[in-house]
Protein backbone atom coordinates (compact mmCIF):
# COMPACT_ATOMS: atom_id res chain seq x y z
CA UNK A 1 0.00 0.00 0.00
CA UNK A 2 1.41 3.33 -1.04
CA UNK A 3 0.81 6.90 0.06
CA UNK A 4 -1.23 7.44 -3.08
CA UNK A 5 -3.58 4.56 -2.12
CA UNK A 6 -4.29 6.20 1.24
CA UNK A 7 -4.96 9.52 -0.48
CA UNK A 8 -7.40 7.87 -2.89
CA UNK A 9 -9.21 6.07 -0.06
CA UNK A 10 -9.41 9.34 1.88
CA UNK A 11 -11.18 10.86 -1.09
CA UNK A 12 -13.63 7.94 -1.20
CA UNK A 13 -14.53 8.31 2.49
CA UNK A 14 -14.65 12.12 2.33
CA UNK A 15 -12.20 12.79 5.14
CA UNK A 16 -9.58 15.55 4.80
CA UNK A 17 -6.55 13.95 6.44
CA UNK A 18 -3.48 15.89 7.54
CA UNK A 19 -0.06 14.82 6.24
CA UNK A 20 0.76 13.39 9.69
CA UNK A 21 -2.40 11.30 9.66
CA UNK A 22 -1.62 9.96 6.21
CA UNK A 23 1.91 9.06 7.27
CA UNK A 24 0.56 7.14 10.27
CA UNK A 25 -2.14 5.34 8.26
CA UNK A 26 0.47 4.34 5.70
CA UNK A 27 2.06 2.23 8.45
CA UNK A 28 -1.02 1.09 10.39
CA UNK A 29 -3.35 -0.01 7.60
CA UNK A 30 -0.92 -2.50 5.98
CA UNK A 31 -0.16 -4.11 9.37
CA UNK A 32 -3.87 -4.67 10.03
CA UNK A 33 -4.40 -5.92 6.45
CA UNK A 34 -1.58 -8.37 6.86
CA UNK A 35 -3.20 -9.73 10.01
CA UNK A 36 -6.70 -10.06 8.51
CA UNK A 37 -5.44 -11.64 5.27
CA UNK A 38 -5.49 -14.93 7.25
CA UNK A 39 -9.08 -15.28 5.97
CA UNK A 40 -7.77 -15.85 2.46
CA UNK A 41 -6.10 -19.10 3.52
CA UNK A 42 -9.20 -20.37 5.35
CA UNK A 43 -11.90 -19.59 2.81
CA UNK A 44 -10.44 -21.05 -0.34
CA UNK A 45 -13.86 -21.88 -1.77
CA UNK A 46 -16.38 -19.08 -1.41
CA UNK A 47 -19.03 -20.24 -3.82
CA UNK A 48 -21.54 -20.71 -1.04
CA UNK A 49 -21.97 -17.91 1.43
CA UNK A 50 -24.75 -18.51 3.94
CA UNK A 51 -27.07 -15.51 3.67
CA UNK A 52 -28.43 -16.04 7.19
CA UNK A 53 -32.08 -15.76 8.13
CA UNK A 54 -34.34 -14.53 5.34
CA UNK A 55 -37.98 -13.54 5.55
CA UNK A 56 -40.29 -10.80 4.36
CA UNK A 57 -39.86 -7.74 6.54
CA UNK A 58 -41.78 -5.21 4.46
CA UNK A 59 -44.65 -3.36 6.07
CA UNK A 60 -47.59 -1.90 4.17
CA UNK A 61 -46.83 1.35 2.42
CA UNK A 62 -48.62 3.68 4.79
CA UNK A 63 -47.50 6.80 6.57
CA UNK A 64 -47.14 5.86 10.23
CA UNK A 65 -45.70 8.86 12.03
CA UNK A 66 -45.44 12.47 11.04
CA UNK A 67 -46.48 14.27 14.18
CA UNK A 68 -45.77 17.96 13.52
CA UNK A 69 -43.56 18.14 16.62
CA UNK A 70 -41.44 15.24 15.31
CA UNK A 71 -40.97 17.01 11.99
CA UNK A 72 -39.98 20.21 13.82
CA UNK A 73 -37.50 18.37 16.06
CA UNK A 74 -35.88 16.68 13.06
CA UNK A 75 -35.64 19.89 11.03
CA UNK A 76 -34.24 21.70 14.07
CA UNK A 77 -31.39 19.18 14.26
CA UNK A 78 -30.08 20.39 10.90
CA UNK A 79 -27.12 22.79 10.85
CA UNK A 80 -28.92 25.18 8.47
CA UNK A 81 -32.68 25.27 8.12
CA UNK A 82 -34.91 27.34 5.90
CA UNK A 83 -38.60 26.90 6.62
CA UNK A 84 -39.45 23.26 6.02
CA UNK A 85 -36.18 22.65 4.15
CA UNK A 86 -32.64 21.75 5.15
CA UNK A 87 -30.24 24.08 3.39
CA UNK A 88 -27.07 22.58 1.86
CA UNK A 89 -24.43 23.70 -0.62
CA UNK A 90 -25.15 23.34 -4.32
CA UNK A 91 -25.15 19.63 -5.26
CA UNK A 92 -24.95 19.80 -9.05
CA UNK A 93 -22.55 22.12 -10.82
CA UNK A 94 -23.58 22.87 -14.38
CA UNK A 95 -21.12 24.90 -16.40
Amino acid sequence: MKRQDIIELAELVRIDFTDDEIARLEKEIPSVLQYVSAVQKIATDVTEVDPGLRRNVLRSDEVVSTKPEDVEALLDSAPVREGRYIKVKKVLNVD
Partner: peptide, 24 residues
Protein backbone atom coordinates in the same frame (compact mmCIF):
# COMPACT_ATOMS: atom_id res chain seq x y z
CA UNK B 1 -10.57 3.87 5.84
CA UNK B 2 -9.95 0.16 6.41
CA UNK B 3 -13.61 -0.57 5.69
CA UNK B 4 -13.56 1.42 2.47
CA UNK B 5 -10.47 -0.53 1.41
CA UNK B 6 -11.89 -4.03 2.01
CA UNK B 7 -15.09 -3.06 0.19
CA UNK B 8 -13.41 -1.33 -2.73
CA UNK B 9 -13.49 -2.82 -6.18
CA UNK B 10 -10.50 -5.11 -6.66
CA UNK B 11 -10.19 -5.96 -2.95
CA UNK B 12 -13.79 -6.91 -2.14
CA UNK B 13 -13.30 -10.53 -3.25
CA UNK B 14 -9.98 -10.91 -1.45
CA UNK B 15 -11.19 -9.48 1.87
CA UNK B 16 -14.88 -8.84 2.47
CA UNK B 17 -16.20 -11.83 0.55
CA UNK B 18 -13.63 -14.16 2.14
CA UNK B 19 -14.43 -12.82 5.60
CA UNK B 20 -18.16 -13.43 5.11
CA UNK B 21 -17.33 -16.94 3.90
CA UNK B 22 -15.22 -17.57 7.00
CA UNK B 23 -18.13 -16.30 9.05
CA UNK B 24 -20.48 -18.87 7.48
Amino acid sequence: LLGAYVLSSGYYDAYYRKAEAVRS
